[in-house]
Structure formats: C-alpha cells, structure tokens
C-alpha cells in the first residue's frame, strides 16, 4: 500500500530530521536511507530532498559541511543541530498526539 502524498508531504521535515538524528549524511545517502525505511510505503524522488535540506539549513535545524565521503569524493554532509533535535522532538510529539486522535476516532467509528 502506498501512502497518500499529502500525508507524506506533511511529514517530510520530520523524516529528514529523524534520519539525520541517527547519522549525519549527504543527500544521496539520505534519500536511499529514507526510501529503504519506507519499504515501499512511499518513494521520494531524488530532487525533492534537496529543497527540504536547504530549507532546514536556512531555519538552522541542520548545518551543512563539505567533507570527503568514504568513497573518497567530496560530499556535502548534513548534521542535525540542537534546534533541529528540539524541532524533531516537538514534531514527533505532535504526530503522536495526532496519531492518537486519528486512532481514537477510527476506533469510535469501528465500535
């Protein structure tokens, strides 16, 4: 089952931040990691992640740094900042509450 695009779209920043919270990485690897985690629920197009990364960088939630990847090539690595971790925490909490409400309403409908 594929998830609704709007649903995924609303959570893009959280998905990026949560992935970066595990490990700093660069765009290509980040997309592969997220698509792998999605396991077919959705698949991000490669071009979509960079505008999100740049927006997060502008907001100070991530910071970027050029460094040499394990392939020996120069890549722009993204690190989550303290502000980013805080935003991630808030975002996850909002999602949990949202999720809880949706589940409760769903159960009420089924009951």
């Amino acid at each position: 089952m594929k998830l609704d695009k709007e649903l995924v779209g609303a959570s893009t920043s959280l998905l990026v931040l949560s992935t970066l919270a595990r490990e700093a990485t660069y765009g290509y690897r980040l997309i592969k990691a997220i698509n792998k985690e999605a396991d077919g629920l959705f698949e991000w197009q490669e071009g979509t992640v960079y505008p999100i990364l740049h927006k997060l960088e502008k907001e100070g939630l991530v910071r970027a740094q050029w460094q040499t990847a394990d392939t020996g090539r120069r890549r722009k690595y993204y690190y989550i900042t303290a502000g980013g971790r805080e935003a991630l925490g808030q975002g996850v909490e909002q999602w949990q509450r949202w999720h809880g409400m949706v589940m409760k309403l769903g159960e009420a409908r089924n009951g």
Binding site: Y26, G27, Y28, R29, E46, Y50, R73, R74, R75, K76
Partner: peptide
C-alpha cells in the same frame, strides 16, 4: 555554485549506483 556542486555529487553517486 554550492548547490551545483552538491547536485553534481548526487548525479555522480547515482551513476555509480
């Protein structure tokens, strides 16, 4: 320039992939 370099890196990774 920075974004272009990043884009090139992505294209390179994709091709290698």
């Amino acid at each position: 320039e920075d974004a272009r370099e990043e884009l090139y890196g992505h294209l390179e990774d994709k091709t290698l992939g």
